[in-house]
C-alpha cells in the first residue's frame, strides 16, 4: 500500500501512561485576579438591587427604557438622559431546563434542574430585561410569555449583586397557592 509508509509504528499510549507520569506533560495554574470598575450605570443598578428595586436608563432620542441600564445609547450613540425605576415583574421571553451545572458536571438524580430564563421586565422597553433563574415552578409548566415576579433575598443579606434576586417565580402559581393578604407584599 502507498499509505503504508505513513503508518506510525510502536505501541499506542494509554491514559494510564499519562496518569503514572510515564509521559511528561507541563501543568500550570494561573493566578489572575481582577476587580472591574462598575462605573456609573452598573454601579447604580447594583446599588438599587441592594435596595430591592430595579432601575433602568432612558434615551430621549429612541425612547427606549434600557435594562440593564447604560450611560450611553449604543444605537443613537449619545449619552442616555434619565433614570427610571421599573417593576420587579415581567414576562418569560425564553428559558431552558439545565440538567448540568455551570462547569458541565451533571446534576444529581435528586437535584432539580436549573431553570435559566430571559425575563422582559415590566416598564422596560420590550426585549430588555434580566437573564436570571426561575424557581417555585415545575419545569413542565414553564412557557414563554408566562408572567413572573422577582423573589428577593432578605434586605440584610443583599450585597449589591444580581444574586440579590434569588429567582423569578410565576405570578399565577403564587396566586393559586398563597393567601391574597400575603400576595400584597
Amino acid at each position: 500500500m502507498e499509505l503504508e509508509k505513513y503508518k506510525l509504528g510502536g505501541t499506542h499510549l494509554k491514559s494510564s501512561d499519562f496518569e503514572k507520569g510515564k509521559v511528561l506533560t507541563t501543568a500550570w495554574q494561573p493566578n489572575l485576579a481582577y476587580t472591574w470598575d462598575n462605573g456609573v450605570a452598573i454601579g447604580r443598578y447594583l446599588d438599587e438591587l441592594k435596595n430591592g428595586r430595579i432601575i433602568a436608563r432612558v434615551c430621549h432620542e429612541c425612547h427606549r427604557i434600557m435594562l440593564p441600564p447604560r450611560m450611553f445609547c449604543e444605537l443613537c450613540f449619545r449619552p442616555t438622559d434619565e433614570w427610571m425605576y421599573v417593576q420587579d415583574t415581567g414576562v418569560v421571553s425564553t428559558f431552558s431546563v439545565a440538567r448540568v451545572n455551570w462547569d458541565a458536571s451533571r446534576r444529581g438524580p435528586k437535584e432539580p434542574p436549573l431553570l435559566p430564563a430571559v425575563i422582559e421586565i415590566d416598564g422596560a422597553t420590550k426585549g430588555m430585561g434580566i437573564l436570571h433563574m426561575l424557581g417555585e415552578v415545575d419545569p413542565d409548566d414553564i412557557k414563554a410569555g408566562m408572567k413572573v415576579r422577582a423573589v428577593w433575598k432578605k434586605s440584610e443579606d443583599r450585597t449589591g449583586a444580581i444574586t440579590d434576586i434569588l429567582y423569578f417565580k410565576p405570578l399565577r402559581a403564587a396566586a393559586s397557592k398563597k393567601a391574597p393578604a400575603r400576595r400584597k407584599r
Binding site: W36, D37, G39, V40, A41, M71, F72
Partner: peptide, 11 residues
C-alpha cells in the same frame, strides 16, 4: 479610573 466602567471610558 474607578468612576467609570471600561464601556463608559471607551464611549
Amino acid at each position: 479610573t474607578p468612576d467609570v466602567s471600561y464601556r463608559e471610558l471607551i464611549f
